[in-house]
Write a protein that binds this DNA or RNA. Structure first.
Length: 584
RNA sequence: GGCCCCGUAGCUCAGCUGGAUAGAGCAACGGACUUCUAAUCCGUAGGUCGUACGUUCGAAUCGUACCGGGGUCACCA
């Protein structure tokens, strides 16, 4: 348990003993936080407790704070405690507390920072879900990285996470894809196909698929009616595209446990039909007309009766169509069925990662999940904003029509998976992001990827130096655990410990908010702490890590460095970024 | 026109379930290298937190309106 949690409990106890806490609503008590003060000169811990409970108790916050302070004056872990500003209670800890923290990090190793927030509950995180019509482009990359890091983060706090990819293999675009491939098939048989007609997929990546069709079927497809070859070609090209996508994702070390096929939901007795029947039983479906959107009636607006889902009963702006004018299901109809299916599989927590162009879809999706689970399940939709690619300060223009898409594979091949992942996670997901190739490849402080990895490598180099300079000394993990940690007594060392002491708290905050970027920023701060201490050793030889004159202090400092690296490595692992021992 | 996101230092952004004097990096200026990899560190300067009301002991954070930027808007996926 981390110090912030420990002291939250003590604050609660102090309140309970000093005031008649039954008059205080629990929701209010939950607002009490123990956190590091914004300004570190205020102390190690700070709590707003007195201000939160002042009002219901009808007392002055500072008066209440005084009572709580009395309690902490007895605390053997507390060096000093004072009231500040409107009623903050600032606590300064004795150094043995920091040494205990350090000891626990060494003890826990890679387990440090874990918690049981998730209580083993099942969460389904659906991300990427790019249409299987070609290789992934950069537009998909952000959602891929975000979803993957979020999944790791949730696992770290003990959620039972399933990483899922929804394969849109049922819509009209798959027919188009198959027809595009059929053209490539003819081409492979030696036919001159000329320009790829408008509306078909022009990409070269379909060429090998056409060739594969020749080696599997020879010329036989040419003699079949379209109805027949279409199904065959569809199944082959879908397999091929999905493989392409899996290869792209593998470049970023992303692996989904479940690839869920939309197609399997269709059919007479399929899940969509069942779902709609179920919704009808609940009286959530009706025949009716929709109003055209205000201020913007589409040219081809057709005023007609359609099958509608009562989405507006669940917070959506309007009801939503389930059946298209040609009688087939809408995409949304299959999506309701899909989310119902997830719910039936036991996912009461669902997270869906979508691109910026889907923001209008959120309310609809939430309404659907509420309806199909009777309010039992929750869904959080995370929108990833656009990524602008920059080269030499110039934006790289991308166009789908001309086929000039920058692919995921190109970007990863150029700058590496670590850099791509870290840069995309070093920004809140709901804000647009510039990805500058030049910066990402730079090896300076400006480049946060490098800065953080360098800190880890630097720490590792300290161990290499120690081994070289003090070959007889045992600096294995077991030896580090036995180090006399009380020797880490300088303000610089205690400051560094206080930074890594925040890791569990940060993990908890990031996991609850579904915001992996918080980990990226925190890790950056840890790296800074290490670089800072390192430089201190330059100015003051007594603060060097490796010191032949004092083996005890050396061992303690190595233990500290190791603990810092535990945190760096753990945080980077959540982000899916390597922690190199050496930089080339 | 409706809905969603964004507006914080010259630039790029953190901070947003209300809390103290609003933070970091870059750029600018001034320092620290016979190095435990200076591929780093320290310092100075830089702000009407888009605007205006409101709620509150207390607002960058919550509410309303407006301004500016982006996205989206039956039947596509």
């Amino acid at each position: 348990m981390d110090i912030f949690t420990i002291f939250s409990i003590r604050v609660a106890k102090a309140i309970e003993q000093s005031f008649s806490s039954e008059t205080l609503p629990k929701a209010l008590l939950d607002r009490i936080v123990v956190e590091p003060p914004r300004d570190s000169t205020h102390g190690d811990l700070s709590t707003n407790a007195a201000m939160v409970i002042a009002k219901p108790l009808g007392k002055n916050p500072r008066e209440i704070a005084a009572k709580i302070v009395e309690f902490f004056e007895q605390d053997e872990d507390v060096k000093s405690v004072e009231i500040a500003g409107p009623g903050f209670i600032n606590i300064r800890l004795k150094s043995h507390v920091w040494h205990q923290v350090l000891a626990s990090i060494l003890e826990l190793g890679s387990e440090y920072g874990r918690s049981d927030i998730g209580k083993g509950e099942k969460v389904n995180i659906e991300y990427v879900s790019a249409n299987p019509t070609g290789p992934m482009h950069v537009g998909h990359t952000r959602g891929a990285v975000f979803g993957d890091a979020l999944a790791s983060l949730m696992q770290f706090v003990n959620y039972d996470v399933t990483r899922e990819y929804y394969v849109n293999d049922a819509g009209g675009q798959v027919d188009v894809l198959a027809k595009s491939v059929f053209l490539r098939y003819k081409q492979a048989l030696g036919e001159d196909i000329g320009e790829i007609p408008q509306g078909l997929y022009p990409g070269d990546y379909l060429v090998p698929v056409g060739q594969a069709l020749v080696s599997e079927f020879g010329k036989t497809l040419l003699d079949m009616p379209e109805k027949q070859w279409l199904e065959l070609v569809k199944s082959r090209v879908l397999d091929a595209m999905l493989n392409l996508i899996k290869q792209d994702l593998a470049k970023l070390n992303i692996k989904h446990e479940v690839f869920f096929s939309e197609k399997t939901l269709h059919g007479e007795n399929g899940e969509i039909a069942k779902t709609i029947a179920w919704l009808e039983e609940q009286d959530l479906v009706y025949q009716g007309k929709l109003e055209p959107p205000k201020g913007k009636t589409p040219d081809d607006w057709e005023d007609r009766e359609q099958t509608l889902f009562r989405a507006s009963n669940f917070g959506d702006d309007t009801d939503r169509a389930l059946v298209k004018s040609d009688g087939s299901y809408t995409y949304f109809a299959s999506d309701i069925a899909y989310h119902r299916e997830k719910y039936i599989r036991g996912f009461n927590h669902q997270i869906v990662v979508l691109g910026a162009d889907h923001s209008g879809y959120i309310k609809r999706l939430k309404a659907a999940v509420k309806a199909i689970s009777d309010g039992e399940a929750d869904v959080d939709v995370r929108i990833c904003q656009l990524v602008r690619l920059l080269r030499n300060g110039q934006q790289i223009k991308m166009s789908k029509r001309s086929g000039e898409l920058v692919t995921l594979a190109e970007v990863v091949d150029e700058v590496g998976s670590d850099a791509v992942r870290f840069m995309l996670l070093f920004r809140r997901n709901d804000v647009p992001l510039d990805f500058d190739f030049a910066l990402v490849k730079e090896q300076t402080r400006d480049n946060p990827v490098f800065y953080v990895q360098y800190a880890h490598a630097r720490a590792c180099s300290i161990f290499r130096t120690a081994k070289k300079e003090l070959p007889d000394m045992d600096i294995g993990e077991a030896a580090l655990k036995k180090a006399d940690l009380s020797l880490a007594s300088s303000p610089e060392e205690l400051e560094l410990i206080s930074i890594i002491a925040q890791y569990p708290r940060l993990i908890a905050i990031a996991a609850k908010a579904h915001e992996p970027h918080k980990i990226a920023f925190y890790i950056h701060e840890v790296a800074k702490g290490l670089h800072k201490f390192w430089t201190k050793g330059k100015e003051n030889p007594n603060l060097r890590f490796v010191n032949a004159n004092s083996l005890n202090v050396t061992l303690t400092r190595l233990a500290l460095v190791h603990a810092v690296n535990v945190v760096l490595k753990s945080g980077l692992a959540i982000l899916g970024v390597n922690a190199p021992e050496k930089l080339s």
